[in-house]
Amino acid sequence: MSLLKLDRAVKNFGGLAAVNNVSFEVHKGEIVGLIGPNGAGKTTLFNVINGFYSPSKGDVFFDGKKISGMKPHILCRMGMARTFQIVKPLKRLSALHNVIASAFVRANTRARAEEIAVEALKFTNLYDDRDVLSKALPIGKRKRLEIARALATQPALLLLDESFAGLNPSELNESIEIIRKIKEKGITILIIEHHMKVIMSISDRIVVLNYGEKIAEGTPHEIGSNPLVVEAYLGEAQDA
């Protein structure tokens, strides 16, 4: 059954269609990768799904309900969480307080919020850094803090926007492990990623965007051998 469904979603900025007629579904329990060259409209699409933008045309459905135009905070309550490509830590709060603040969505008391937060921090291997101000964390940990904060809202669907960018190899493996564990918890994931090795190894299915339009959809194997995709995306990588 589909948890997220886009039906010919369009987002125009003036005369530019940043997202043009994109339709696809994400099923419960899946990891779906969203890839495409720079400027393909991936983050814009996230903003449309997440409610920061409302679609110019077309609709977005979450768990069977039409959510086009709903605000992010309402979608968060409904079970959709996201991370940001350009991380947005609450700078002058410690890692723990960052996550407590987001855990309040599912907690009535401060103690319960802290319980959820501690669990999320342990899950993302940040528990030892809980008292560090988030502006003092290195980028790898800030990326994981974004994930911890999203997890603390106990989502059904998690939107990850380039959570692997800028990580060193050991951090990369750590993060892949975390994504796998998130999937085991039964959380559905839609992930934007540039790192081809990562996206090919963790995704169940991949959707490819180019110039705001969906040019391909399929299993990692199918995508890897799709000539359109190779030309638009992987071709560049081979040349380099």
Binding site: N50, P72, F84, P89, A101
Partner: peptide
């Protein structure tokens, strides 16, 4: 600290 982050954390 960050209004957009706050929105995405479920804060109206």
């Amino acid at each position: 600290e960050d209004q957009d982050a706050a929105e995405s954390m479920g804060i109206n």
